[in-house]
Write a protein that binds this DNA or RNA. Structure first.
Lengths: 214, 214
DNA sequence: CGTGAGTTTGAAGGGAATCAAGACTAGTGG
DNA sequence: CCACTAGTCTTGATTCCCTTCAAACTCACG
């Protein structure tokens, strides 16, 4: 499940997948890249590191919309403003592409317009998978789903380095941090994963995991 | 919340908002328009009636992805196959636009490419709102959110005709039919809505509803 | 006026949340 | 290099919101 929002058919090049380069910017861990309500002047590509996009309710409840890994694009909007906040989950480099320039280029080159559509539609697919997960899956299915998704997207075989905290996992999965922790511990005692350190997870039985993720 | 996936700036015309017409097809209540896994050869616009798009897990759990009302587009995909099933919720007329033709037109006309992008990005926005709702909101907040969204999209003042069954509401909201029913009854005894018939809901206090939907 | 699908209501149970410690772990500075 | 410390994570006990199971009700339709 959860196919990645990435341009997998084009390795990031000097000129970038849209045919021109944008400036690259470094962000320290937990630094904000843009905020909900900011003017959406750029779209972004993760060059290295990883990014979370999230939304906050007035009372502090947080929902992480998506984790963006190296290669992924984020910050694409229909309107003029960003509707989510983007923060670096580790020291991260992002390429910034000016939206106006991209829009102009898309107006001239059909392949660019097509790539932009594809990127957006893939984001929609991932969001739909997320909806299914949050609406109809158990805590265990959600946690397993996230692990399998991360493994697929990073190309990990069985050694998985997770870029996010337990709190981030919880806020992505619509659970609490305690439930995420308990579920991981349970998966470990079931023998399908091992947890040598908090940010490193060994997938010991991928077939079983695929079954549990439903 | 939940801005509609519609072309609000173009009233549906004889030629359609993409500048050309497609054939219109009628579907009876509960009839399938396309199914998960079908080849995505068309995109669709609801002319009259309403449509649900949903996904099914192997064990029968169902998640409704979106309700599509008159004017809305649905069936837009990044890949070659439909990833959801679309069914008419009432007797419904849909316009079918051949995907290949649309893709060709988008390659020639930047305004069409732009409209297609916008439609997709708006669908993504709505899906993100849905994620927030399912991940972090209570049953009451979800039900109120749906009612307010439907009222906004249909332009209803206080008299709201809901096109879907309680089961559909439950499967959209990630709840059970019993919880939806109880929540509506509770909202009625709180005086913020009235339920003269099952498919007709009176919004008696929109300010209170906006607060409760949070 | 029966008949049945859809809906509402009730009672009981369960999965995840909440509340509360305790155990790591990763920095920090001596 | 190694305590010290703050933040993160895990574990435990309890609570609660929603689900499940069950039955009654409503209303459209023959």
């Amino acid at each position: 499940m959860l196919s990645p929002l990435r341009q997998t058919d084009h390795a990031p090049t000097a000129t970038g997948p849209f045919g021109f380069t944008g400036p690259c910017l470094r962000h320290a861990r937990d630094e904000e890249i843009f905020s909900e309500g900011d003017s959406a002047d750029y779209i972004y590509q993760v060059i290295s590191g990883s990014v979370r996009t999230c939304r906050l309710l007035r009372d502090g409840r947080r929902q992480i919309d998506e984790f963006h890994l190296a290669g992924d694009y984020f910050g694409i909007e229909a309107g003029d403003l960003h509707r989510v906040t983007a923060e670096a989950m580790a020291d991260t480099t992002v390429r910034m592409v000016r939206r106006g320039a991209l829009s102009d280029l898309a107006a001239q080159r059909a392949d660019v317009a097509r790539a932009l559509f594809r990127l957006t539609a893939e984001g929609l697919q991932r969001s739909q998978d997320h909806v299914l997960m949050l609406g109809r899956k158990s805590a265990r299915e959600r946690v397993v789903g996230l692990l399998v998704d991360l493994a697929e997207r990073t190309g990990a075989q069985s050694e998985l380095d997770v870029p996010m905290s337990r709190q981030d996992m919880a806020d992505y999965l619509g659970l609490t941090i305690e439930t995420v922790s308990r579920t991981l511990t349970q998966l470990q005692s079931d023998g399908v994963i091992a947890l040598p350190t908090t940010r490193h997870i060994v997938l010991r039985d991928r077939a079983a995991l695929r079954r549990l993720g439903d």
